[in-house]
């Protein structure tokens, strides 16, 4: 951990009609850190991601990436600035090939416009061919099994491979910050172990990459994040190492009471 704040949220608040979905949440993500986000269903964890990635505009509060405010920027600009994400229910481009999914992830790192495509096809095609080669490498580095399936339609992948592909697609944008929204959902224990190994392999290659990860699986939360923050009813109720927060009565009440005590 190099210790400077990459991503920072200040007093993030959003209201939908009368419902306050997020209420004054502050957070800091250090370079090279993995920050776990836990909390009961409907606590507002995904909302937090949606606020960071520009899908929702906060009613109040600010998000900074390396001290540059992100407020008001459209989602696609935020990706370009270096924040990529995955989705809770995987949202792949199912009718395209695995490789195409990753190439699309590189969209903001490629240049060709309409005129290039129409009038300078060799340039546009060369760029895409390069992207394809790079995407292949990326896939291989994430998972050899996925690389072997790169010509298939994404819809044909098994659940665990879909997750991997989604992570690979997010990495294709060369992010500074990676947001993983419940990567283990729908996975069995063996797949979850593989996922933990995959994420370890990814950070081993990218020491500067910072990750925020929403999780329900306490095994994963215990293993991966350096720090964990707990959200309940749109508020941050605790923050610290997993060992610390798991013993906080308030956290146990809100969340761990039911699930993690059974696990631990």
């Amino acid at each position: 951990m190099s210790g400077h704040a990459v991503l920072r949220g200040e007093g993030l608040t959003i209201r939908f009609g009368g419902l306050v979905a997020m209420d004054g949440v502050d957070f800091v993500l250090q370079a090279g850190e993995i920050l776990g986000v836990i909390g009961p269903n409907g606590a507002g964890k995904s909302t937090l991601f949606n606020l960071i990635t520009g899908l929702y505009q906060p009613t109040a509060g600010k998000v900074f990436l390396n001290d540059r405010p992100l407020n008001g920027l459209p989602a696609h600009r935020i990706v370009q600035m270096g924040i990529s994400r995955t989705f809770q229910s995987s949202r792949l481009f199912t009718d395209l090939s695995v490789l195409d999914n990753v190439i699309i992830g590189m969209h903001c790192r490629t240049q060709s416009g309409v005129f290039d495509a129409m009038l300078r096809p060799s340039k546009a095609r060369g760029e895409l061919r390069q992207a394809a080669a790079k995407a292949g490498e990326l896939l291989r580095s994430v998972s050899a099994g996925l690389y072997d399936q790169r010509g298939r339609a994404a819809s044909e992948l098994a659940q665990a491979d879909r997750r991997r592909l989604e992570i690979a697609r997010a990495l294709a944008a060369e992010p500074k910050v990676l947001l993983l929204d419940e990567p283990s959902s729908g996975m069995d224990d063996r797949d979850t172990d593989a996922l933990i190994a995959d994420v370890r392999a990814i950070i081993a290659r990218r020491p500067e990459l910072s990750i925020m990860i929403i999780e329900h699986d306490m095994r994963l939360v215990a293993e991966l994040p350096h720090r964990v923050m707990v959200i309940e009813y749109g508020r941050k109720i605790a923050e610290g190492s997993f060992a610390d927060i798991r013993n906080m009565p308030r956290v146990q009440e809100a969340y761990l009471g039911r699930k993690a005590t059974a696990h631990a």
Binding site: P74, V79, F87, L92, F93, D95, D100, G105, H107, A173
Partner: peptide
């Protein structure tokens, strides 16, 4: 590719930049 992406899932396409 960008067109195909927004055909498949517009929101996911936005999140790919």
């Amino acid at each position: 590719l960008a067109w195909n992406a927004l055909r498949a899932d517009e929101l996911a396409a936005r999140c790919q930049g």
